[in-house]
Write a protein that binds this DNA or RNA. Structure first.
Lengths: 343, 343
DNA sequence: TTTAGCACTCAGTTGATAGGAGTGCTAATC
DNA sequence: GATTAGCACTCCTATCAACTGAGTGCTAAA
């Protein structure tokens, strides 16, 4: 869809004005506020063309124009000027990771809370899955018969702990032995590598102790298969309610319904291009409940392996430039911090 | 305020009808639905008296009556018939604690999620604070220089773990030593007792190792003073939005503002009678933001010591009988489970 | 003391009207 | 040929009056 320069300017003006005010944009207001050097009548003519192309639409005859979903798509693809976060905002983000104790659960909470201050969107975060984190050490702590705590420390200093159930036949000595084996063979490897490696290397070595291996596998699996890791964390509900589109109670209810549907949020968040900030607008999100929203998402990684996704969800009339800047910066910093490049 | 029997019946009818329908109640509908054996005119006379007493009020001249805040108070104190949970509901609550791993954080989440299904209120939960839990064992796990994991297991099998920072001068051997001391002297005591006991018993014993004592105190304090324990957990936002009072967008915003104010929620939750289910109605809650809500709260305990509070927040027109039954049952079960009486 | 009956009040709805914002089209201008 | 001024037209929004109906309060009778 090749638009001449002036049509692009008009479309850009309409999108940006509507993002700012949430109101339909009139030809006259464009002529006044954006110095295109032509009269409102000329802009009206261009608007008629843009409407024919399906990029803008009229809520009713005597109203101004608002961008259509394809209009926003055109804007995001070709008109939007990428912006960076201000250094003040970047500093704010850095404070998320200033705290010394590197506990994943805390970091997730702090990330969401902080981003909430940076945008008016709903903040979504999945993971991080530790599968691709390299192991520094595993500690096991026998608690009660049949119960032990497994503590995982990654090479980059992140701590995660889980209580697991064991066959009650496993003694404290077994556990110590298992811990030793795990640390000896697996230090520096990722969990993913462990599952592959174990069969080759360790199995032969410990063939005499079949039972111990079974236990080891149970532990590794218990740690990896914890469903709670797959939870979607979210915040900023209050934020998004400030947007004028949610002064209608039905919109609010729809939004709350969406928030409740964790599986939907998950599929939205995971439908993300692996190497770039992804923008999905309205019906581009393959989900009926969400066809009135847009999402900006990106994955973050540990040592180059995707381990989670981060995203912002807002009305279609959201500030895409800012949302993209936030998502890009957050996922960059998350990746750095989890991979240990900084700090 | 002594009301004759019929006035009480009329007040009860008004409160219960209004709780059910959220609409003003007319004399005629009472005459029809509640078999009082008198005509609507007689009920109108009684209503006039009740209004003069300030127990009911009229939104406008040609509307029915709704209970006033003192009217609800009278109802809760003298008219409300206490009810128990159905055995189906009780069974549902028991499933919260069916999971084997006794991890406090998980239990908190599950409790909230479950109660969300039992009422239309906002579910609030604080704690549990471990101060009054008796200690089975403490494990320390050195992680990195200056960082250790402290794992606490209570006598009743609950597990809580924290990453703490230590002076980097503390070695792994120090830590093991500290762990031994802690376990030797403190097993079976509550954290509260520990803080009192340590000065008397242990200090003399370990006088040669002043430094170690300081470390111990640091650990004990680090564990106790973790702010995250004082967080208020909440759920059921979607529930409460279904209530007809929240079809007004400003009401929704006010509610969201209240939810955001964690310190307010905390003070509401902690203003609870220590030995009974507490009901606070509207302005009885000492908080302007909350004067349009009612709360039903109660504390739960470990071995008789209060360790946290549980409550339901809803519109003043809430189902008090059910809310009280839920709060009473949940706190009873929480206390049992945490104290180890069952399971 | 209770009740039937009726006048009265007032919120909510409907319908008509006026005002205003914005467009689309036409004819004049550059 | 592109641009623009001007004007008729559309349709949303606000306002006001009239109407409706639910519910009350009061009075007089049972």
């Amino acid at each position: 869809m090749g638009l001449n320069a002036r049509k692009q300017q008009v479309l850009e003006a309409i999108v940006e004005s509507h993002i700012k005010t949430a109101e339909p944009v009139s030809s006259r207001s464009i002529a006044r506020k954006y110095r295109l050097g032509v009269s409102s009548a000329t802009i009206r003519n261009e608007m008629a063309d843009l409407e024919e192309l399906g990029l803008i639409e009229q809520p009713h005859t005597s109203a101004g124009r608002i961008p259509s979903q394809p209009g926003y798509r055109y804007y995001v693809d070709r008109l939007l000027k990428k912006s960076d976060l201000s250094s003040r905002d970047e500093k704010l983000v850095r404070t998320i990771f200033a705290q010394k104790a590197r506990v994943l659960a805390n970091m997730v909470q702090r990330t969401i809370k902080t981003v909430t201050k940076l945008t008016d969107c709903l903040v979504l975060l999945s993971g991080p899955q530790l599968e691709n984190a390299a192991l520094r050490q595993i500690k096991t702590v026998p608690l009660l018969p049949g119960k032990a705590l497994v503590v995982i420390v990654t090479v980059t200093g992140w701590v995660e702990s889980k209580v697991i159930d064991l066959p009650s036949s496993v003694t404290a000595e077994d556990l110590t032995h298992i811990e030793n084996v795990l640390n000896t063979y697996f230090r520096g490897l990722t969990f993913q590598q462990i599952s592959r490696t174990i069969l080759n290397n360790v199995y032969d070595e410990l063939i005499k102790q079949r039972k111990a291996i079974d236990r080891i596998m149970e532990i590794v699996e218990a740690v990896l298969q914890d469903d709670s890791d797959e939870a979607i964390y979210l915040g900023g509900t209050q934020n998004i309610l400030k947007q004028p589109e949610y002064s209608d109670i039905d919109e609010v209810r729809n939004l709350m319904g969406l928030i409740e549907e964790e599986s939907t949020l998950r599929s939205i968040l995971l439908d993300t291009h692996p190497h770039a900030v992804t923008v999905r607008i309205g019906r581009e999100i393959k989900c009926d409940l969400a066809s009135n929203y847009s999402v900006v998402t990106a994955v973050y990684n540990i040592g180059g392996y995707a381990v989670g996704a981060f995203g912002l969800l807002g009305p279609i009339r959201m500030d895409y430039a800012r949302a993209m800047a936030v998502v890009e910066y957050i996922t960059k910093v998350l990746s750095e911090v989890l991979s240990g490049d900084t700090l």
